[in-house]
């Protein structure tokens, strides 16, 4: 099992001045989430905005911590891990793709791709060769030294996908990866996701786009912080 969650709650506590009466009241963003995602699955998380799908993805990605419940990632209980241990897990075993790409503006495409590898201590030469072959695979072999500002949105997202793969993680987490792209480019990017999936990676993808979701092996619907159905 790649991801196993049991009775996960996520409550954001509001500052007292925001509710005005000093009462300690929280907002339940996720309530009693239990789910299993097997290795090699392609799952789409769907829901309206505010349904908690991004928060759920952040919890899966160890960028956030649940208020209650248990989470087992690749067979490992990650509750109570400290910040460094969670960083190490993000580094080795998870790949992230975001809606707004998040490329470092002053670094070239290749340098952006190898960034996660720099924090795992992989040698530069090894990273370079991995980065070059990944960029070739996403069709940017001729733009390796381009800065992000000289790449189109679709190309920037390809760089981001190559970056997500550079440490050879088992799980790719994507938050609205096609949200800023037109439909043709979206299709190309989704094609890449399917290629990556074909390599045996587990993919969890947040989207509100029906067509994108339809391509996934399984759709999990979220409604008001709960899993629907």
């Amino acid at each position: 099992m790649a991801i196993r969650m049991r009775h996960i709650d996520r409550t954001f506590r509001q500052e007292p001045q925001q509710i005005g009466n000093g009462e300690d009241r929280g907002v339940d963003v996720l309530k009693d989430i239990s789910l299993d995602i097997a290795r090699g699955e392609f799952v789409a998380l769907q829901g309206t905005s505010g349904s908690g799908k991004s928060t759920l993805l952040q919890l899966m990605g160890l960028l956030d911590q649940p208020s209650a419940g248990s989470y087992t990632l690749m067979g490992r209980d990650v509750a109570g891990l400290d910040d460094n241990a969670r960083s190490d897990l993000r580094n080795c075993c998870l790949g992230f793709v975001f809606q707004s790409f998040y490329l470092i503006p002053y670094a070239s495409a290749l340098e952006n791709v190898i960034l996660p590898g720099l924090y795992s201590g992989t040698s530069r030469a090894e990273l370079r060769s991995r980065g070059v072959s990944l960029l070739e695979r996403v069709g940017l072999g001729d733009r390796m030294n381009f800065k992000p500002s000289r790449l189109s949105g679709g190309q920037q997202q390809r760089v981001a996908m190559a970056r997500a793969l550079v440490n050879e993680p088992d799980i790719i987490l994507a938050d609205e990866p096609t949200g800023q792209l037109d439909s043709t480019t979206s299709e190309e990017i989704m094609g890449l996701f399917h290629d990556v999936h074909a390599l045996g990676k587990t993919i969890v993808l947040v989207t509100h786009d029906e067509i994108v979701a339809a391509g996934a092996g399984r759709i999990i619907h979220l409604e008001d912080g709960r899993i629907a159905d």
Partner: peptide, 16 residues
């Protein structure tokens, strides 16, 4: 801050 958040997401320790 985006660069910092990204690096943290990619697994950079606070110390890094």
């Amino acid at each position: 801050s985006e660069e910092i958040g990204l690096k943290r997401a990619m697994g950079a320790h606070r110390s890094a």
